[in-house]
Write a protein that binds this DNA or RNA. Sequence first.
DNA 1: GATGAATGAGTATTCATTCAT
DNA 2: TATGAATGAATACTCATTCAT
Lengths: 198, 198, 198, 198
Amino acid sequence: MIKDKRERILLAAIEVVSQKGYHQASIEEIAKTADIGKGTVYVYFSSKKELFRELVKYSIQKFFEMLEQELNGIRDPKEKLRVMMTVYTRFAIKHTNFAKIVLNDIGAVGEPLKRWMMTARRKMADLLSDIIDQGIKQGMFREVDRQTVALMFIGSMGANIAPRIFFDETDVEEKTYDELIEKILEIFLNGINKKQVW
Amino acid sequence: MIKDKRERILLAAIEVVSQKGYHQASIEEIAKTADIGKGTVYVYFSSKKELFRELVKYSIQKFFEMLEQELNGIRDPKEKLRVMMTVYTRFAIKHTNFAKIVLNDIGAVGEPLKRWMMTARRKMADLLSDIIDQGIKQGMFREVDRQTVALMFIGSMGANIAPRIFFDETDVEEKTYDELIEKILEIFLNGINKKQVW
Amino acid sequence: MIKDKRERILLAAIEVVSQKGYHQASIEEIAKTADIGKGTVYVYFSSKKELFRELVKYSIQKFFEMLEQELNGIRDPKEKLRVMMTVYTRFAIKHTNFAKIVLNDIGAVGEPLKRWMMTARRKMADLLSDIIDQGIKQGMFREVDRQTVALMFIGSMGANIAPRIFFDETDVEEKTYDELIEKILEIFLNGINKKQVW
Amino acid sequence: MIKDKRERILLAAIEVVSQKGYHQASIEEIAKTADIGKGTVYVYFSSKKELFRELVKYSIQKFFEMLEQELNGIRDPKEKLRVMMTVYTRFAIKHTNFAKIVLNDIGAVGEPLKRWMMTARRKMADLLSDIIDQGIKQGMFREVDRQTVALMFIGSMGANIAPRIFFDETDVEEKTYDELIEKILEIFLNGINKKQVW
DNA sequence: GATGAATGAGTATTCATTCAT
DNA sequence: TATGAATGAATACTCATTCAT
């Protein structure tokens, strides 16, 4: 009850949208969850779409804040990649429902948000590009296309985590996420290392 | 006018959905495009959601048919991986709009479709697993976790193609898709090869 | 139940709008009154505004139909004026509520309708202009400005009838409408006659 | 900033309502125009409707003040009628937007206001009745029904001015308003004069 | 089987009004 | 007095779905 209203609404929206998806989340329920009047939502957000956009921005911002904090102080490129995967995975697990929904309903809110997410993705890719560039300059990695490799890294993480958060496919084998991270990292690094790791 | 009605409807739905997205595609317009009565849609599909589900299945089926045909006769695992990427890329480019929409609106049609897509993805992963397994058995690849690697391959492709079809991000560098495929393949193979390729 | 749906809706709308005015008349109530579904209204009219516009056109059309029918066959300009007043008065009395509301809420539906009513008013004025012109040519009336006089005639009728239908001001004096018509006609004709009538 | 708040609000309301009409004029904008807080409006007026009512009363009051001032000192009934038309016309032109809006949206504020306007109209009619009565007593006008004639006069003016302010129907002929006034007066007087004027 | 007229559930949004400060 | 943040009632409109023909 103490937090500022705008944030109260954002958090309530994340909760409701995570459960029902964008289209099924009614403004009324979001307001009820935030324990405020329906009209108040429109004092802080001009429309449902805008609320959704701000909610996505808010979450991604939190992700990058967490990421930067964790990366802070680490020097070794390989270690940086490991931290990145860890944060990424942890975030994805923690906000599973939200991630699902955002990915599922992103089309509903039109270009502007997509552009924003593109920016976020590019930011992520740029962070990775820099790490890889650093590794190359240190003579640790081969001379590879930084962007392509960055995207490969993102994709490799995503594709392995997605089924788990999307479909609770924990059945295949109960690998812990740490093991998964190591496996991916090992293969990935092998792909770009100057010397084979194994 | 010759094809059976069910397929006529599916094709009309793909067309309309590709242009407008799931929510904006009205049954009426789909029916009009298929040149049949609105009620007729409900003779073949029990609901809009089901129509959408069937439409996705239909498209994915076509993808696998194409894939199997292209893979037919090829023996070398590395060559198989290259063909896979080529077909995947070609399909994604050809059905850009459709892909966009399906990915954007997938949340709108609920679990069943997601389960089906999981199956498709797993099928893709299994195909890849087999290829990798074959490579390992031939002493070409290292002993790696087949599933993880399969998903890494899918993710590496997807993450590199997605921005191009989603955001027309052709600006960075006008790499041709063939070049892109080679780059990814090179790094990926390096990651799993017994000997470094370079 | 027999009439065509469009007319059923128009009549229901006239009824509801007459009682509540444009803004208070909800589509739901109109539909209920017409004993049809809410959605059906939108099959025949694209919006509430359009329904209102059509309703006004419909009524004015009926007025002119009635007017032309009554004027049919009459030659004497003075007699024509008398008939005009009679029809005008009769219509105003019969559709009192409707007239009130239409006049009251006309601003709510925007320019197009106003333009249409302008046309109607001008049609009425033109009819009168012709009658007066005829009288002038027959040497019965003085050479006066036809348009101005036509509008004076309309205004003289309206201003005398309005308070009666608007405020039930039948208290002042229980003049019958016929007496009123005669009085107005007498003074009006005196104003334009070549010879004084009295 | 000097005027008392109530009048500040009334003037702001006139301004906003003239531009947007009753329904589109929001309390917020009126308050902003008056340069006061939204809540303050409710200190002086119990509701939007009441504000509108008071606003109409205020304007009509101003009209009668102007009218009485102009009529002051004039003796000749005919001259009085001429002055009346002039003031009426001038007022209508000056407050065109306001007049339009008030007439258009009058239904929105319900019976009370209409009753008040009836009073105003009657007051106008009574003023005219007196003038006509005076003319009759002076042997200038015939023995006619004062009320009916008064309303005819009002209607004759109104019907001729209305199209000009409502539809900018200045096309027919660019008669100046003075000419119009003379024409109407001539015919009207002819209708009630003892001797023909021409 | 095929049709399309009829339906009504479902919801974002506005804005006059309130009331704690 | 004056304020403006908060409120929630009220409503037009869409479109998937039904069913009589």
